[in-house]
Amino acid sequence: MSVRNEPNVLSRMEKTGSTILKCMHCGVCSGSCPSGRHTSLNVRKLLRKACNDPAVLSDDSLWMCTTCYNCQERCPRGIDIVDAIFEMRALAVQEGIIYPEHRKVGELLLEHGHAVPINEENRTKREALGLDPLPPTVHSFPEGLEEVKKLLTSCGFDELMSEE
């Protein structure tokens, strides 16, 4: 995975780009990170890399954040750290940097309006519970699904998920 277009990640981070420069590298974020206890994610280093290295967008640890928000709640500088991670991830996806499993979730949403659609096993479970085999969501309302599909097209989500 490589970054093709854009050298300056910081300037492309719409809301948090300038605020992550406020980081004083105290490390409260990394010390509060439940993922970092078990994985290679180091939130402080990730933010530092975002300031000066476009390769941050292809850093594997960008996707190890469970978005628990401990770092954001505890940051003494009040930096919206998880929001910054969301923005970096969005830039990565625009560059085509995306796990196949995540692309699959996007495709399921495009097709069904659910990221986790119904399956045969759970139709049976629903019936055993006395529920309708399909829930009263877009699964039961095709016109609702059409609305969702129109919105996804209008936002360009179908193009974003398509493999070039």
């Binding site: 969301f86 991830r89 969005a90 996806v93 979730v105 969501t137 877009v138 609702g144 360009g156 998920m161």
Partner: peptide, 19 residues
């Protein structure tokens, strides 16, 4: 009735905020 995925905060919010 007729609601969809919320959409999922981890994966889908990561991809595109407007969506």
């Amino acid at each position: 009735e007729g609601a969809s995925c919320c959409p999922a905060p981890g994966v889908l919010r990561s991809f595109d905020k407007a969506t």
